[in-house]
């Protein structure tokens, strides 16, 4: 699977800020296909987990109301430049992906 995650982490003082963009359709299941008139089945990310040093920092639970190609950003303390942050997601069809980035 092509990489679906773009992640960047930057440390400033004591705080590391992580920004991530995920490529995902985030279908609500309420939309109709313009051509066939059939409902497009729901397909959205349910859980996004971010880990630093093997420990979960943020665990995001999402519904279908999160926008297409989701963006998320958060901050945490205790990271040094060179550390690795890992982001992984799982959607309602059981697909998943993960990516890692070095903290700058």
């Amino acid at each position: 699977m092509a990489k679906s995650i773009r992640i960047r982490a930057k440390v400033k003082g004591q705080t590391a800020t992580v920004k991530a963009l995920i490529t995902h359709p985030m279908e609500t299941g309420l939309r109709k296909d313009a051509k066939t008139g059939e409902m497009i089945p729901a397909h959205f990310i349910q859980e996004v987990k971010c880990e630093h040093g093997g420990k979960t920092v943020v665990n995001a639970l999402w519904g279908a109301a999160v926008s297409k190609n989701p963006y998320l950003s958060f901050a945490f303390t205790g990271a040094k430049p060179g550390d690795t942050v890992k982001l992984s997601w799982v959607d309602n069809k059981g697909k998943s992906d993960s990516a890692e980035a070095k903290v700058k």
Partner: peptide, 22 residues
């Protein structure tokens, strides 16, 4: 369905999150 997202934060995480919703 009103709930859009829930972010579970551990003690290291700052109380600040951003995302985009519909």
């Amino acid at each position: 369905t009103p709930l859009a997202a829930n972010f579970e934060l551990t003690s290291n995480a700052k109380a600040m999150i951003s995302t985009r919703i519909k």
